[in-house]
Simulated assay, not measured.
Amino acid sequence: MDLSVVICTYNGAGRIGQVLDGVRSQVHTESITWEVLVIDNNSQDHTKQVVEAYPKVRYVFEAQQGTAFARSRAVKEAQGQWIAFIDDDTVPDENWVAQAYQFTQTHPEIGAFGGQIHPEYEVEPPSGIGKIAPYLAIVERGSKPHRYDRVLPPGAGLVVRRQVWLDHMPEKLVLVGRTTATMLASEDIEAILHIQNSGHEIWYNPEMHLYHQIPKWRTEKSYLLKLIKGVGLARHQIRMTRWQAWQRPLITPIYLLNDLRKLMTHWVKFGRSQNLEVVCEQQLLLSSLVSPFYLRRLNLKE
């Protein structure tokens, strides 16, 4: 099979129907062999009933909480040579599948690629949301395809070569995704880094368009601070994944000192400003600083 479209969801009964409608409405797919697979990541609502109302959609239940576990299960279950991940709140453009498949044909040697993700806010977002948008998985990087280097695409809209994932992904990632127990984020970036570290390129395909449905509560200051805190607390693991094991003890103090310098500079410059962009940046810097200690304590508990 050419392509498996995978939607990982948790309590997505109120959202996933719109996504499945978008998938069902794809055009120019006559020459593509593809499937649709929903991984229900331990939902407690009626997600299963909503999904089963759609013919030709395969439903799989994954009880272990965390997006990383859902994606790992999807790779095992999928039949496609390429796996295209869509979040349960990202609606695909009608050409999304066709454009994803086309890119696999013109770039068959790469490991993974992502496209554009545009916001569709329920209400007008607050001032200063622009620089925070990447944390909401908004990706708009122009009209030309290019290879990613340091900045990587989010898991929403990621298309990955299945065999590359099977060959190079650890049995268990350190970051498993946000759960009821932890708010740690960036599990998708950790996975993509393992693909990149294996020597396979990660690309940007501007012809793939997703539309991220963002409700009012996800633009509120309290949620954004919690979201960015999770990104910061995961930062040490993301950084260390880029380095060899023997290099990590040497590079960690450098990161710590640099994070402390950045945080102190930011506080001196902005003080106790309540500007949304400022407080989010301070939260990211503070969480990044404590990230090594937080992750170590988390690992000791486990």
Rank of each mutant, 00 (worst) to 15 (best):
P153H: 11
K172F: 04
G157A: 02
Y148V: 01
I192V: 15
A185N: 13
P154V: 07
P215V: 03
V159E: 04
E190A: 09
A191T: 12
R218C: 10
Q196G: 02
Y121F: 15
G114F: 02
L166S: 05
G155E: 05
L136N: 02
E220G: 08
N205E: 06
S127F: 09
F113N: 13
V151H: 02
E109Y: 11
T219D: 10
R178M: 12
K172E: 15
L184V: 03
L152P: 07
A137F: 09
S222E: 15
R150V: 05
A112F: 14
M169Y: 10
P206I: 08
L158G: 04
P215Y: 01
L175W: 02
E124D: 09
R178K: 13
G128T: 03
I132T: 01
A137N: 05
P154A: 07
D188S: 00
I189K: 12
W165M: 05
P126Y: 07
I110G: 08
Q213I: 10
P108H: 14
W203Q: 08
M208T: 15
Y148E: 03
G142Y: 06
D149N: 06
N197W: 00
H118C: 09
S222G: 02
T219M: 05
P154S: 12
E187H: 08
Y121M: 01
V160Y: 00
T180K: 12
E171N: 04
L175F: 08
D167Q: 11
M208C: 15
Q196W: 04
L166V: 01
L175I: 02
G142N: 06
P154E: 03
L136R: 10
T219N: 10
E187G: 04
K172Q: 15
L166C: 09
V164C: 13
V160T: 09
G128D: 07
K216Y: 13
K144H: 04
P108L: 14
E187M: 04
V151W: 11
H212P: 14
P134W: 04
P154D: 01
T179L: 06
G155Q: 06
H168Y: 15
V160F: 06
G128S: 00
S127M: 06
A191S: 14
P134V: 04
M183D: 13
L175R: 01
V139G: 00
Y148N: 05
H146N: 07
H212I: 10
Y223K: 03
H118S: 13
A191L: 14
V123T: 14
V139L: 12
V139H: 06
P215G: 02
P126Q: 02
G128C: 06
V164M: 03
N197Q: 13
H200A: 07
H209W: 10
V151T: 11
S198G: 12
K144I: 13
P215A: 05
M208L: 13
Q116P: 00
R161G: 05
